[in-house]
Amino acid sequence: MTFKAIINGKTLKGETTTEAVDAATAEKVFKQYFNDNGLDGEWTYDDATKTFTVTE
Rank of each mutant, 00 (worst) to 15 (best):
M1I: 14
M1K: 08
M1P: 06
M1D: 09
M1Y: 14
M1S: 12
M1T: 14
T2F: 09
T2D: 04
T2E: 08
T2I: 14
T2Y: 07
T2P: 05
F3V: 01
F3L: 01
F3Q: 02
F3M: 03
F3Y: 11
F3I: 01
K4T: 14
K4N: 05
K4L: 07
A5P: 03
A5F: 15
A5V: 13
A5I: 14
A5R: 00
A5S: 02
I6H: 05
I6A: 03
I6N: 04
I6E: 04
I6R: 04
I6F: 05
I6D: 03
I6L: 07
I6P: 02
I7N: 04
I7T: 05
I7Q: 03
I7H: 14
I7G: 05
I7C: 12
I7K: 00
I7D: 02
I7V: 10
N8W: 13
N8R: 08
N8C: 13
N8F: 12
G9W: 13
G9C: 14
G9T: 14
G9V: 12
G9K: 07
G9I: 14
G9Y: 13
G9H: 11
G9M: 15
K10S: 11
K10N: 10
K10P: 12
K10I: 13
K10A: 12
K10Q: 12
K10F: 13
T11G: 11
T11W: 14
T11V: 11
T11E: 11
L12R: 05
L12H: 14
L12Q: 12
L12N: 10
K13T: 11
K13W: 13
K13R: 13
K13C: 15
K13P: 05
K13M: 11
G14L: 15
G14W: 15
G14P: 06
G14C: 15
G14A: 12
G14R: 12
G14N: 07
G14M: 15
G14Q: 11
E15F: 13
E15R: 03
E15D: 05
E15T: 11
T16K: 12
T16A: 13
T16M: 15
T16W: 15
T16D: 02
T16N: 05
T17W: 14
T17P: 02
T17E: 07
T17C: 12
T17K: 07
T17G: 03
T17N: 05
T18Y: 08
T18M: 09
T18P: 01
T18S: 04
T18F: 15
T18R: 04
T18I: 14
T18V: 14
T18G: 02
E19A: 07
E19M: 12
E19P: 03
E19V: 15
E19C: 15
E19S: 11
E19H: 13
E19W: 15
E19F: 15
A20F: 02
A20M: 02
A20R: 02
A20V: 03
A20K: 01
A20S: 06
V21H: 10
V21P: 14
V21S: 11
D22N: 07
D22C: 03
D22I: 01
D22P: 00
A23P: 07
A23Q: 08
A23K: 13
A23S: 09
A23G: 03
A23W: 10
A24H: 08
A24I: 09
A24R: 08
A24T: 08
A24S: 09
A24K: 11
A24C: 12
T25C: 07
T25K: 04
T25H: 11
T25L: 05
T25S: 12
T25N: 06
T25F: 05
T25G: 07
A26N: 00
A26S: 01
A26H: 01
A26P: 00
A26I: 02
E27H: 10
E27D: 01
E27M: 14
E27R: 07
E27N: 03
K28H: 08
K28P: 01
K28R: 11
K28A: 13
K28Y: 07
K28Q: 13
K28M: 10
K28V: 07
V29M: 09
V29G: 01
V29C: 13
V29K: 10
V29H: 14
F30E: 01
F30Y: 00
F30N: 01
F30G: 00
F30T: 01
F30P: 01
F30L: 09
F30S: 00
F30D: 01
F30Q: 00
F30I: 02
K31T: 04
K31M: 08
K31P: 00
K31D: 00
K31S: 04
K31A: 06
K31Q: 08
K31G: 02
K31C: 06
K31E: 04
Q32A: 11
Q32L: 08
Q32Y: 04
Q32H: 06
Q32M: 09
Y33L: 10
Y33R: 05
Y33H: 05
Y33S: 04
F34W: 07
F34I: 11
F34R: 02
F34A: 14
F34K: 03
N35E: 14
N35W: 14
N35K: 15
N35Y: 13
N35F: 14
N35A: 15
N35R: 15
N35G: 11
D36N: 10
D36S: 08
D36K: 10
D36R: 09
D36P: 03
D36I: 08
D36L: 12
D36M: 11
D36V: 10
N37W: 15
N37D: 06
N37F: 15
N37S: 11
N37I: 15
N37A: 13
N37R: 14
G38W: 08
G38P: 03
G38A: 06
G38N: 10
L39F: 15
L39W: 15
L39S: 04
L39E: 03
L39P: 03
L39V: 13
L39I: 14
D40A: 12
D40I: 14
D40V: 14
G41A: 10
G41D: 02
G41C: 08
G41Q: 05
G41P: 05
E42P: 05
E42L: 09
E42R: 07
E42S: 10
E42Q: 10
E42F: 12
E42Y: 10
W43V: 08
W43R: 00
W43P: 00
W43K: 00
W43G: 00
W43C: 03
W43S: 02
W43F: 07
W43L: 06
W43H: 01
T44C: 09
T44W: 07
T44G: 05
T44H: 13
T44F: 09
T44E: 10
T44Q: 08
T44Y: 10
T44D: 09
Y45G: 00
Y45N: 00
Y45E: 00
Y45S: 01
Y45V: 00
Y45R: 00
D46I: 02
D46T: 02
D46H: 04
D46L: 03
D46S: 04
D46Q: 03
D46N: 09
D46F: 02
D47C: 06
D47I: 07
D47W: 07
A48Q: 09
A48S: 10
A48N: 12
A48F: 11
T49I: 04
T49K: 06
T49F: 03
T49M: 06
T49W: 03
T49H: 04
T49D: 03
T49V: 04
T49R: 06
T49Q: 04
K50N: 06
K50A: 06
K50R: 15
K50C: 05
T51K: 01
T51P: 00
T51D: 00
T51W: 03
T51V: 05
T51N: 01
T51M: 03
F52H: 00
F52R: 00
F52Y: 03
F52V: 01
F52I: 01
T53M: 11
T53I: 08
T53G: 02
T53N: 05
T53S: 05
T53P: 00
V54Y: 13
V54D: 00
V54T: 01
V54M: 10
T55R: 04
T55M: 08
T55Q: 08
T55V: 10
T55W: 12
E56K: 04
E56L: 15
E56P: 12
E56N: 06
E56D: 08
E56G: 05
E56C: 12
